[in-house]
């Protein structure tokens, strides 16, 4: 008797947690999308009005576009730099542990700290980058104040923060390449680049896809960086979807509309991730 119920007792914390903090919120979120609610006044049923508003809400679409811009810069940059550094670390070098630890440091530090630091680096008058630019005789750049540059600047910062993790992942991938392959290639007189494209790349292909999937999910949750650095400006060029949901929900207390944005956005994320996973599996 006791034995029979024991497994259920063991999994019950999960089931209770799932019911309260996952299943109910998902259901309630769908319900909320059909209502207007500012928390203090009673809920008001509005049918599909929130969805209608979403489709004509230029700021929301702008936030999606911003996310795409972010990903288009962030992902390739991340892969190239991470691969490059991983290749270097995979050579016979001294102090490998030190370099690896240094590259990894930003990964473990809070995004808040990173953002505060980069805000200073990107400063117009006193920032490091503009000082260097002026020193070599170039003009200052409005890193966070030029609408065309602010989002790429944030993407570069995010790359700096996360690339260490991907260096490690690539390093693990690189170490799975059987050394005989390289020896054979050396015998045939292959160049460094040939070896990289013909041997290394195919082996670490799965890692690359994984990096793409992880960075995509990361990019979709972009929040604290624009929240601290730009507040979503200039001209809404750095407003991310999560920041916009936060703004609608906790600035203006449009709970119904914020839930609609969250629900719709989550569907987009799911679709993108499913498509990416399909591609990965097909490739394998």
């Amino acid at each position: 008797m006791k034995k029979k119920y024991l497994p259920y007792f063991l999994v019950s914390p999960y089931l209770i947690h799932f019911a309260i903090f996952v299943a109910f919120p998902v259901g309630f979120s769908i319900y909320l999308t059909f209502n207007n609610w500012n928390i203090i006044a009673p809920m008001e049923f509005v049918g599909l009005a929130n969805y209608k508003r979403l489709f004509s809400d230029a700021t929301f679409w702008k936030s999606l576009l911003n996310t795409v811009i972010f990903l288009v810069i962030h992902i390739p940059l991340q892969i190239v730099i991470a691969l490059f550094l991983a290749e270097l670390l995979n050579q016979k070098i001294k102090f490998r542990g030190f370099f690896r630890a240094a590259f990894f440091l930003p990964v473990i530090v809070s995004g808040v700290v990173v953002t505060i630091l980069w805000q200073q680096l990107y400063g117009f008058d006193t920032g490091l980058f503009n000082r260097l630019l002026v020193k070599v005789g170039l003009g200052k750049i409005g890193w966070l104040t030029d609408p065309n540059i602010a989002m790429p600047a944030i993407a570069v910062m995010a790359t700096w923060k996360n690339v260490g993790l991907y260096v490690i992942l690539f390093l693990v991938g690189l170490q799975t390449v059987p050394p005989q392959y390289y020896e054979a290639a050396d015998l045939e007189g292959a160049t460094h680049f040939q070896k990289f494209f013909k041997i290394t790349l195919p082996v670490i292909n799965p890692t690359i896809f994984m990096v793409v999937v992880l960075s995509t999910i990361g990019g979709f949750s972009l929040f604290i960086e624009p929240y601290v650095m730009t507040g979503g400006g200039p001209l809404n060029s750095t407003i991310s979807a999560v920041l916009y949901i936060y703004k609608q929900g906790f600035f203006y207390y449009h709970m119904g509309y914020a839930a609609t944005l969250g629900f719709f956005f989550a569907m987009i994320i799911l679709a993108v991730v499913v498509i990416q996973k399909r591609l990965v599996e097909k490739d394998r």
Partner: peptide
């Protein structure tokens, strides 16, 4: 694990 947190954010706050 695949469920994005963006969907539960608002209702979890209300909870």
């Amino acid at each position: 694990m695949t469920l994005p947190f963006q969907i539960t954010l608002i209702p979890q706050y209300i909870l």
